[in-house]
Design a protein around this nucleic acid. Structure first.
Lengths: 226, 226
DNA sequence: TTCATAGTTCGATGTTAACCGAAGCATTAT
DNA sequence: ATAATGCTTCGGTTAACATCGAACTATGAA
């Protein structure tokens, strides 16, 4: 018989400050080396190695060896979803202890969540896609409509290339700042990529923040009205 | 160090097996007393009190005093959402991990939960009652069928005596082993009492463990096939 | 009042796990 | 080859915390 819910195990993995810092650093979607993650968490390399082994065993992160470097990233979007959901709760209740640096407003506005767009803009995009009838269905059964396919093609997104059997095309992800859903899945990834390709916005280095240009913001609002 | 977002704190709260068991028990939505939660987690009341104080301080549960009872429930929907998300992930990556402290294997097998049978045997009994069509309905509307009444009478349980207006006759109780229910309510109480009366099993003194005799186990399996 | 039940608090104990120094691999550079 | 870098593993120490017994508070019942 199974023991208590493995949710305890998952919780304890996230429950360590060092590991939590690593995981939040990885929500940027970038692959980071063990040394970089050790720096993020403020611990030595040996300790980080131990933590990363545990995170890997717990299927929270994925390791990719390249030469003498070990690159880590979040295992999948579900992990990102768990982290985001927890950050949502933590941000709401721990308002006292959350350091509100200058970065925060920008992050709330638009940021990378794993590999798709989150924040106010992410929520707006998701809502707009729903309101215009481009995507339909509930959280579980989210699908693209005919009009949606047309819309995306017009935006320059190649839907054929997105047809992976493994990852779902459409998926919603709960946002921590807005407590609303935003678009994840391969479509979410493709949309963010296209936004960056079209130079509507650029990604800030060393941050999860996404900053829109004047004209880029205008285009974005045109494409995704509320 | 920058103590990261309180996601670590949240994780560590959920990360303890006892607390995780309590939280999953509360996902049923029902308000449970400290004693009931202690029984579910397989710990003493003192320990449970300590855990519940921490969960309350962390805004994960809400306490409502009523007379000499303290009723606990999840603080809000967001907490339930966090738990659900984590359970979703944990379920997918099944039992691939070493979990901490089985505490007492005997407790896992069969134990008293408040006043009814829990553990493997409790789950089996509940499943069997459902499979044989003796009880029907969902978690909210759980009722005894005609065949069920007959079955219980044959076991020597006096249904008339159980007709209390105060407590529900049938009630399911979420087990440690997340997601599986066992029989609670007055019927659950009566069933355990009868098992002890028939000497199928005895209750260990100073413990919540229930130990079945060889023949008692046989009878139990006959009455409650899977 | 006296007793019983439900829960909290305190103190002591035992287990766990995070942490880092040092040594051991593995890969790349010189 | 030899050195240097990136990471892992081993060992021992330290700090945190889950656990339970015992004592205490509070509400309800006899």
């Amino acid at each position: 018989m199974k023991d208590g819910p493995n949710i305890a195990l998952l919780g304890s993995l996230i429950g360590d400050p060092a590991r939590a810092n690593m995981l939040t650093a990885l929500t940027s979607g970038k692959a980071l080396t063990a040394s970089e993650l050790a720096g993020e968490a403020g611990i030595t390399l040996q300790t980080a190695s131990s933590h990363l082994a545990k995170l890997e065993a717990g299927a929270l992160v994925h390791r990719r060896k390249q030469g003498r470097h070990h690159y880590f990233c979040l295992a999948d979007e579900e992990v990102a979803s768990v982290i985001e959901t927890m950050m949502g709760f933590a941000a709401k209740h721990g308002a006292l202890r959350t350091r509100t640096g200058p970065k925060d407003p920008a992050l709330r506005k638009a940021r990378v969540c794993y590999n798709h767009l989150a924040g106010e803009y992410g929520v707006r995009m998701f809502d707009s896609l729903c309101a215009q009838g481009y995507v339909k269905g509930s959280a579980k059964t989210l699908g693209l409509t005919g009009a949606g396919q047309e819309f995306l093609a017009e935006m320059g997104i190649d839907l054929q290339a997105l047809a992976t059997p493994r990852r779902p095309l459409c998926k919603s992800c709960l946002d921590w700042s807005a407590r609303r859903s935003h678009m994840a899945g391969t479509l979410g990834t493709a949309l963010l990529a296209q936004i960056l390709t079209l130079k509507w916005a650029i990604r800030q280095p060393d941050s999860r923040a996404i900053t829109f240009s004047r004209t880029g913001e205008k285009r974005f609002f045109e494409h995704f009205p509320v």
